[in-house]
Write a protein that binds this DNA or RNA. Structure first.
Length: 428
RNA sequence: GUGGGCGUGGCUCAGUUGGUUGGAGCACCGGGUUGUGGCCUCGGAGGUCGUGGGUUCAAGUCCCAUCGCUCACCCCA
């Protein structure tokens, strides 16, 4: 049995890459318009970085990380998300000294050892953005607006759900209220919730178990238990979203999978991803930079979008027509013709054209077929007989019209002449 | 980690109560057109029927095991 790709690792074949490129181009363009600069960071980091940022009791750290021992004994991990690495770099290079507010984005693969399913892979790709150095709610809204813009320009729709998780000042009180509420419940909870009660009460809110959900009717809701500052912040976020007329819903049960979030969290959700719902998600992490040994205070906020999930959504829509990928196909018959074709091919490619020829010397019929397959706009036919008469045939593949044009062996002269006869081809 | 579904040419799938040479469509190559693509037509190449074992005179088909894919739980982008 030949070697195959690992479970949950997928090849992105040439058929799909145009879609990926479209997504990336669209996103990069928008990032640039919103003032973000690209940062590229390694995909491998010390395990400690992720444990400290994401949180020891999260599922990601407990059971999903690709962690292994380096040859010199160090513990390394393939990044399960992007924020930790970007912040590490931000701190390491003291980027906060360059300008008061840093806006960064990065695109690349992430790794989580989960059971794969629709919209969920072990190696997947995210584009993620971070804003460091501002705690104003205006930034929160601006970031959501940018995420919204990306979906819009890709022709996708999703709904925006927001919540506030409070801050170190008010969350402990809420956790206590949650514990008290749960302790009053006599009926048995599911095993997971029993465990969550101790380790991470917030996650109880996220339980999908029906009997648990029923019991949690009337559970204290986060937005009602925020401190004055967090309440004000949340209200301002909402006001700014309203100013931009971006529709959203408050989801008091939305809990994120990473421990570092404070205050604003949000998700872009859709029903078209199978069991998965989020195409993008993020939130504020005001204490994280300090926690990683960086400047304090250094508020931050970010979000990530799942590339595979965007691809899935776009594939479910109408596919766009195939663009012309080939300006000219050069069909040659005979050795002498092929020599000329080879030279011309090189000359025209050097001039910025996309052109192709048959390397195998197959029949004209086959060469025409290749030209059709490449969706060539024109085909230049170099026949033996015409060559003797100093002419070649230029065929319009769409209208099937063809004309005889004079041949000039001096390609420095002939090349530009030919280019002038090709629609849409830019000469150099 | 748990459960369901599915494994037959590159792709999508037929394959009758087990029965002799495993098929089709798409794609690929060639002929019809001794030098003209898409449509048509004829032909060709391409398969350890996921793998291993068992039952049987005989297994793609039945049984067991195993691997893989997929969907879902969980969790998340």
């Amino acid at each position: 049995m030949a070697v195959k790709a690992l479970k949950g690792f997928k090849d992105i074949l040439p058929e799909e890459t145009p879609l990926w490129q479209r997504i990336e181009t669209t996103a990069r363009n928008i990032f640039q318009r919103y003032g973000f600069n690209e940062i590229r960071v390694p995909i491998l980091e010390k395990t400690e970085l992720f444990v400290r940022s994401i949180g020891e009791t999260t599922d990601i750290v407990e059971k999903e990380m690709y962690t292994f021992t380096d040859r010199n004994g160090g513990q390394l991990t393939l990044r399960p998300e992007g924020t930790a690495s970007v912040l590490r770099s931000f701190i390491e290079h003291s980027l906060h000294l360059l300008q008061p507010i840093q806006r960064l984005y990065t695109i690349g693969p992430m790794f989580r050892h989960e059971r794969p399913q629709k919209g969920r892979l072990r190696q997947f790709h995210q584009m993620s953005v971070e804003v460091l150095g501002a705690d104003t709610p205006l930034i929160d809204a601006e970031l959501m607006a940018m995420a919204w813009q990306i979906l819009q320009e890709l022709g996708l729709t999703a709904s925006l759900e927001i919540n506030s998780l409070g801050c170190p000042a008010c969350r402990p009180a809420y956790n206590q209220a949650l514990r008290d509420f749960v302790d009053q419940k006599t009926a048995t909870l599911c095993q997971d919730c029993e465990r969550r009660r101790q380790t991470n009460p917030l996650r109880i809110l996220d339980c999908k178990n029906e009997s648990c959900r029923e019991q949690f009717q009337g559970v204290p809701e986060l937005p009602d238990h925020l401190c004055a500052d967090c309440t004000a912040h949340f209200q301002e976020v909402r006001r700014y979203l309203d100013l931009l007329a971006i529709p959203y819903g408050v989801n008091p049960f939305m809990v994120r999978g990473l421990d570092y979030y404070t205050r604003t969290t949000f998700e872009l959700v859709t029903g078209d991803l199978g069991a998965q719902s989020a195409v993008g998600a993020g939130g504020r992490y005001d204490g994280l930079v300090a926690q990683l040994g960086g400047p304090d205070p250094m508020p931050g906020i970010g979000f990530a979008m799942g590339m595979e999930r965007l691809v899935l959504l776009l594939q479910q829509k109408q596919s766009e027509p195939i663009p012309v990928q080939c300006d000219l196909f050069i069909a040659a018959l005979g050795e002498e013709s092929r020599n000329l074709a080879f030279r011309l091919n090189q000359r025209l490619r050097g001039a910025g054209l996309s052109c192709a020829m048959d390397p195998l010397g197959r029949s004209l019929k086959n060469q025409m077929k290749q030209a059709g397959r490449l969706n060539a706009g024109r085909t230049l036919i170099l026949g033996e007989e015409e060559l003797r008469n100093g002419v070649v045939i230029l065929r319009n593949m769409e209208t099937r019209e063809q004309e005889e044009i004079p041949l000039n062996q001096d390609l420095e002269v002939w090349g530009p002449e030919l280019i002038d006869k090709l629609p849409g081809a830019k000469s150099a």
